[in-house]
Design a protein around this nucleic acid. Sequence first.
DNA 1: CAACGGACCTGCCTGC
DNA 2: TGCAGGCAGGTCCGTT
Length: 271
Amino acid sequence: MPELPEVETTRQGIAPYLVGHRIVDLQVRQPRLRWPIDKDLYTRLRSALIIAVERRGKYLILNTTQGSLLIHLGMSGSVRIVSKQASAEKHDHVDIILENKTCLRLHDPRRFGSLVWAGSKPETHPLLTHLGPEPLDAAFDGSYLYEVSRGRKVAIKNFLMNSHVVAGVGNIYANEALFIARIHPDRAAGNISQSRYMNLASCVKIVLTEAIRQGGTTLRDYVNGSGHPGQFRVQLQVYGRAGQPCAVCHRPIKRKRTGQRATYYCPNCQH
DNA sequence: CAACGGACCTGCCTGC
DNA sequence: TGCAGGCAGGTCCGTT
């Protein structure tokens, strides 16, 4: 997926076309996403006026006069604004149609994404209540990471990717932040000093901020709200670079598997 | 409570 | 050319 920078880039791209507009129809071509689309979704969205498009972690939140819709893009999802007449391609599963004949179209080949109705207080929805702080908020810092990691034996990379610890850091940016912070991805989270966590927290912020500035990372099929790919890929230092020289020491980047996920790191620079 | 594996899906690439 | 197998940006849930 779309990790946080891609979701944020998407949010910024689609918000101007949605806010202030009214939903007049919903077309669901494939209801079987991660969770089946609620049969009542059309009733809930019909004639709703979109007030704001927000983001929490990797969730997009469409706030309307009727309540909020959570949109998660899973591993392969994207949304864009198109004319409602534009012919639907394969995997274009849902159109949220506006009064001006444009629509928000969800495209998701792997169907790990979801559309979930969250009512009038989305922050109390179970998918959002347990999320950790936003990584770009002041509440996320080295002291926070240090405190919540005490006693945890899990590898720091998995810890960073745990949305209950911090919301929105996925595989790419966990790898990148650990490289810049020179921390080995397998190190136990509870065995990292406060000063190293101070550094790591700022590395996470730097990597995410820069990726947002570049419009996100496109590996295969990510496109933003206008259908354009992101540009951050060229700046990735370790992700997807197994065997290539480390930018710091020039020794080869290694790849291993942690759980089901690929981990990239420099065994010489990261400890 | 923490850690881990499985589940949900399709498409692309590699190697036989 | 065809097919099997591995792999991919996420994260919830059930079991240890």
